[in-house]
Write a protein that binds this DNA or RNA. Sequence first.
DNA 1: ACATGTGAACTGCTTCACAGCG
DNA 2: CGCTGTGAAGCAGTTCACATGT
Lengths: 218, 218
Amino acid sequence: MKRIADSTVRRLSAYLRFLEESARKGVTTISSDELAKRGGTTSAQVRKDLSFFGSFGKRGLGYSVGELIDSLRDILGLGRQWNVIIVGAGKIGTALAQYEGFRRRGFLVSAVYDRDQRKIGEVVSVTGGQHVIRDIAQIERDVAREKPDIAVLTVPGEDAQGLVDRLVKAGIRAILNFAPVQLRVPNEVALRSVNMAMELESLSFALSNRANAEGADS
Amino acid sequence: MKRIADSTVRRLSAYLRFLEESARKGVTTISSDELAKRGGTTSAQVRKDLSFFGSFGKRGLGYSVGELIDSLRDILGLGRQWNVIIVGAGKIGTALAQYEGFRRRGFLVSAVYDRDQRKIGEVVSVTGGQHVIRDIAQIERDVAREKPDIAVLTVPGEDAQGLVDRLVKAGIRAILNFAPVQLRVPNEVALRSVNMAMELESLSFALSNRANAEGADS
DNA sequence: ACATGTGAACTGCTTCACAGCG
DNA sequence: CGCTGTGAAGCAGTTCACATGT
């Protein structure tokens, strides 16, 4: 398979959300142009994005909403459940643990970790249940045994790289990082970072230079 | 001024963080190569990024850590305080309100809003203080009067676009969106989105297509 | 007639490579 | 001599434009 740009994947995800919304409204057919308007892109871009994976439309007509939803879910690997562990039970970690969007899309929080002895053993709510906070000290053992798919990192910046190294060694294959640091992982591990400091500073820059205010939205 | 790529601004932000860390360690001089290694890029990229704004280094030597920190803070517009309002006092909104990183970089939470009558009037902690949750109904009036710089949106997806329209009309110039929807704003308003669903789906895609696991990190 | 699918053109970010200067 | 600053080359992602299929 050809290498797919990250920007393409993000757009596919956006198309999927809009398609699901359209389906709920009873729309059954949609054109690349309508899809583009809502996704903040162009019809050519939509068609190009989809073309990497096959032909999903009918010429002269557009796309079947239902079929395209199925295809996109398949392309994005959303046809299964992914087990997610949350590493760091601070404010953001516990807030994420309860995020409804996780479950709705097949991401199940299977464990929550912290290193603070006072928190370990406490019960936290997660979407669709509860978990006892586990000790980060046992994370290698747990990851090796339970093989979670994704680790969400919500620990202080100074602890992040060390934990990543441990998680990678234990066999994790995907990490979503919220710590405000640049992490290093081997090529075979997928890493995405959400860096609030960076987003805020980018807004600060835009505000200080009106020329760049123009909305380059992720 | 020349148009600056978004990717450049994000890297500048990363350089700044690393420089501040180096300064704390007592490092006084640094080369583009060292800066690149930690920022996950190349030395040529570092020099090109900086070159858009001037010449900051000494040939044969490198950059003065202190001077470059000052220059970057200036470029990014971090020499002043920015007032931030948080719109939506749910789990994520309240967690963000307490985020230490806000204050440390000059972003001050100046108000918190919700539309839920049961929450309005409640007290929430924010970094360095407390706020009484205000009624979203009064947000236009407050924005017009208090002129906050940035609105952080942490409301349900279905309410997001409506609120953005109101905020923009009231005069907001920058928005950091956490709702999982694609927002539309006029060109003169700066918008950044953090979309967790998108990040997770992008990891799901990477896990389902090992070829793409390679870490394209934001 | 209409909207897709796609090679070709284009744009802009990244990398290269070296002249310039401390 | 070493490292910066930068024009030029390379490359990747986007846009164009039209042939194709219904």
